[in-house]
Design a protein around this nucleic acid. Structure first.
Lengths: 375, 375
DNA sequence: GCTCTTGCCGAAACCGGTTTCGGAGTGCTT
DNA sequence: AAGCACTCCGAAACCGGTTTCGGCAAGAGC
């Protein structure tokens, strides 16, 4: 016995309230209502207030795509995920999306997601989405020092905001966690625990985060008066398995580090199997510190000490800053950095052996392993 | 020395080609071109061909939001992620999104992503996105037996497709992996290896996947002539830690299972720390099989035997089927199931002990642990 | 008291499409 | 040859907004 929809305010129910509904309810024209709502200066305050009240009362919400046909703006925030290489953002993605979409919808914006599987595909996708007015601008995650997306969008005059930083900051807005600060502090922390040989394992050097976190490591080493030997530093550990190789290379030296700082948790996870193979106890023979705060780290044995990034907050701020950007704030005024929360769990401890002892231990184990292999 | 943009076909370059450009190039009216392109029957084949060629030549692509103002359809596929509970879809999300967005953009559709943090928020979000024409329909992941999203969208007449199945299939299209088939086969596999007491750990019973995979387990047990005792079955293992508790409960019985099937890999990961604590070797004392194929499983020690789901393909098919749905195909004809790929890695082996021996072993270890705890 | 500005709003064009309606041709009957 | 249905396209309205333009009325300046 569904009741026939009841007309409200004299308008047909079930249909969306349009701007015409609002204007005729007030005895004004569509144009006047539109200008009133959009802050044109040629509308008296009294009228503007009447219009706003009526719009509110009638539940009027302009259709963004109807506006877009004239304005060209669809109130949509683009996010193009690059999936060619290892998807290192996977762990945070849900939280990140939650933050973005929440902040976006608070301002009545939409989040349009697409993917690209190469640099050129990225370029094409950005172009197509922009030309088709699917997005008014973009959040660019995983920025590189020389980022082709930045180059393209800058040239095309399309607004964007970085999740990260880039080489040439001209005209760039961004939000980032200051990895350099965290890494520098991590070195100090390890030094305080007694470590003197501290290694570093980073990702691809084209990524800004690797460069910045490495800088922090170097500065931290200098702060403590430690020499940062090239032999203690490895790069291009994109996936966990590559980080394992890097860790093994670091440890199978005469004077291995007693602690390693990893640019990402995902890389740090690669230390566990290596320690296993070499018969080392993480958190005793070898201390490690990661960065990001992925859930796996919390459940590892022992749980990983790391710098926890609030991905959700990152998403929120990025969306908020972006909206300010398209509303006219200068990009230079839209740059925010936040320091990740250092969480000491089980992998940062005082060293139990000197580097020399550690080296001999590992060498002996390796010898056994080689022997076994012969059998 | 950027050359001044050259006019093509007599039109101003830089500006998008509109339908008016196409029509005037052919000496037709906008209306005719529109009808030609949209398959109206009152256009001659000759004209239609001319129009299509000209549109192609001029690079005409209709603006979806300009069309939407009249048609109400924006060619946008909605995906609302629920993030209140543990985000169990995180691992596959990137691949899944890649599949969806790829298939969507192949048909010139867009993917609009939003999040909700409760059932009522989900409802509000779906309603708002639909009313505001942000999406023409939805993919519903992680379906429940009685799914409120299905109830709402069905009532509102909004098209949707399930990633999973549901209790009342009336009017529902879906894509799903047939977990019941895989689970049944997993039991047979373990039986073949010599296992006779086989346990099951599932997620929340409100989720369709838990129910179906459990059914498969039960049927598999019956196939093999095994009794499926309630004491061998646990549920509500949503996150890894809960799965650990469930596993421990299963193992700390007089006659523990020698093998456990987990409804998800994420749950299966919970078995590793428990085995550690109880002094059991996974793949010897205890066999386990998971489902999903998350990357962590591959790197676990020993690597997890599981049923690998192709999340990307799921996304692709869902988008494709959905587009067929809005184009008029009946939902009953849009139901696809695929069996996950069984991958035997290191955790399905012949049992080394009888359940009774295993029980005694665990009991003795636990006694030691209790003693230690007293000290 | 008359002009000149200024504030404020209506009228109408416009954005890029879709859809309805009607009418000009054409071919087929009878 | 007239009548008729049918094919095919033009004309124009329409969708829900935005933006330009012009004009009326009130206040300011002289």
């Amino acid at each position: 016995m569904a009741a026939k929809p009841v007309a409200q305010d004299g308008f047909k129910a079930g249909r969306r309230t349009t701007i015409a509904d609002v204007s005729s309810a007030l005895g004004l024209t569509k144009g006047t209502v539109s200008r009133a709502l959009n802050g044109y200066p040629d509308i008296s305050d009294a009228t503007r207030l009447r219009v706003e009240r009526a719009a509110e009362r009638l539940g009027y919400r302009p259709l963004s795509h109807a506006q877009a046909i004239r304005t060209g703006r669809v109130r949509s925030l683009g996010l193009v995920l690059q999936i060619d290489e290892h998807d290192a953002h996977a762990p945070f993605l849900t939280d990140f999306l939650a933050g973005v979409s929440e902040a976006a919808s608070a301002e009545n914006w939409t989040l349009a997601v697409a993917t690209a599987n190469s640099d050129s595909d990225m370029r094409r996708t950005l172009q197509r989405m922009t030309e088709d007015h699917k997005a008014d601008g973009y959040i660019l995650p995983r920025t590189r020092m020389e980022d082709p997306r930045v180059a393209y969008l800058r040239g095309a005059g399309v607004p964007f905001i970085l999740y990260g930083r880039t080489d040439d900051p001209e005209g760039c807005a961004w939000y980032d966690t200051s990895g350099e600060v965290s890494m520098r502090a991590a070195v100090a922390r390890l030094f305080g625990l007694g470590h003197r040989r501290i290694g570093f394992v980073g990702g691809g050097r084209e990524y800004t985060y690797t460069v910045l976190r490495h800088q922090g490591y170097l500065r931290g080493m200098a702060d403590m008066g430690l020499t940062s030997e090239p032999g203690l530093q490895r790069f291009d550990a994109r996936r966990t398995s590559e980080a394992s190789e890097a860790t093994e290379a670091l440890m199978c030296q005469d004077l291995p580090p007693t602690a390693i700082i990893f640019a990402t948790d995902e890389a740090a996870m690669g230390a566990y199997p290596v320690a296993d193979r070499l018969g080392l106890t993480i958190g005793a023979d070898l201390s490690i510190i990661g960065y990001d705060g992925i859930p796996e780290g919390e459940f590892a044995q022992p749980p990983l000490t790391t710098c926890v990034v609030d991905a959700r907050r990152a998403g929120t701020r990025l969306a908020e800053l972006f909206i300010q950007l398209v509303r006219g704030t200068k990009p230079e005024d839209l740059r925010e950095e936040e320091t990740a929360r250092f969480v000491s769990r089980g992998t940062d401890r005082a060293p139990t052996r000197s580097p020399a002892e550690l080296g001999r231990l590992i060498a002996s184990k390796s010898a056994v392993r080689s022997t076994e292999r012969v059998n």
